[in-house]
Amino acid sequence: MNFFENFWDIFWWFFTIYAFFGYMYALFAIIGDIFRDHALNGWLKAIWLFALVFIPFLTVLVYLIARGNGMTQRSMENARQRQAAGEAYIRSVATSGPTSSPSDEISKAKALLDDGTITATEFAAIKAKVAV
């Protein structure tokens, strides 16, 4: 066997695997977009899915050409909604934390001082911070 014959076999194998995973990614992105699109009724969704099963490669190309811009817009809107939900969750968690009184904070700091975890200067800094 010649090195270049093996090289092109390996190259072709990698290209085939890359194309297969690229196709699978596009297929699942399209299926997700079909179900995310509220403008399509159930029959049109069924027709697209039927075509994806029985004429897969051609249907993927037609879908990307015909509905690619809408797919991008729906994906961006979904990302915006997820980001807003994440930020709202972070705000709710950050503001609804347990509130403790200054005396509770000072007693916790005193316990840390007694255990030797913090120094007297750190204890005084915590007291001054809580008192403000």
Rank of each mutant, 00 (worst) to 15 (best):
V60S: 02
S75T: 10
W13E: 04
W48K: 01
E105A: 15
S92C: 03
A26D: 05
T95F: 09
F20Q: 06
S103C: 05
F14T: 05
N41F: 12
S107K: 10
L112F: 05
W43L: 08
G86V: 04
Y23E: 08
A19Y: 03
D115Y: 03
Q73K: 13
Y25W: 10
A66F: 12
M24F: 12
G22N: 07
F123I: 01
K110V: 03
R82D: 08
H38Q: 14
F15E: 12
A46R: 11
N6I: 14
L27P: 00
I31V: 14
A26C: 03
A124S: 12
A125D: 13
F4Q: 15
N78T: 13
L27M: 07
M24H: 06
F7A: 05
G70R: 13
F11H: 13
I106W: 00
K127Y: 09
N6W: 10
E122I: 02
T99C: 14
F54K: 06
M71E: 01
V132C: 03
S96F: 09
W12A: 06
A109L: 03
E105R: 14
F4M: 15
A120H: 10
W43T: 15
S101F: 10
I31Q: 06
R82M: 09
D37R: 02
F54D: 01
V132G: 07
L61W: 11
I31E: 10
A125M: 12
V53W: 06
A125G: 06
L112T: 00
L49E: 05
G68M: 03
N69Y: 10
I10E: 08
F3V: 15
I34F: 07
L64I: 14
W8F: 15
G42M: 12
L44I: 10
A84D: 15
K127W: 04
D104K: 12
S92F: 09
S107A: 10
E105Y: 10
R91S: 13
P98S: 03
A85Q: 15
S92A: 15
L49C: 06
F3K: 09
V130F: 11
T16I: 08
F20G: 02
I31F: 09
L49R: 02
V132F: 04
M76Y: 12
S75H: 14
E105I: 14
A85N: 06
I34D: 02
T119G: 12
F28N: 11
P98D: 03
P102F: 08
V62Q: 10
N2G: 15
Q83W: 06
R80M: 05
A29S: 04
W12D: 07
Y63Q: 00
S100N: 04
D104Y: 11
T117H: 07
W8E: 07
V132P: 00
P98H: 02
R36C: 07
A120K: 14
A94W: 01
G32R: 07
L64T: 04
W43F: 07
F50E: 02
W12V: 13
G42E: 14
D9I: 11
S100P: 00
F28M: 11
N2A: 14
V130P: 00
F57S: 08
I17V: 08
H38L: 13
Y25K: 09
T121F: 06
E105M: 14
G116Q: 02
D37V: 01
R82F: 05
D37I: 01
N41D: 15
Q81L: 08
G22R: 13
A111V: 08
F14A: 07
D33H: 11
D33G: 06
M71D: 00
L64C: 07
S96G: 09
T119V: 01
W13A: 12
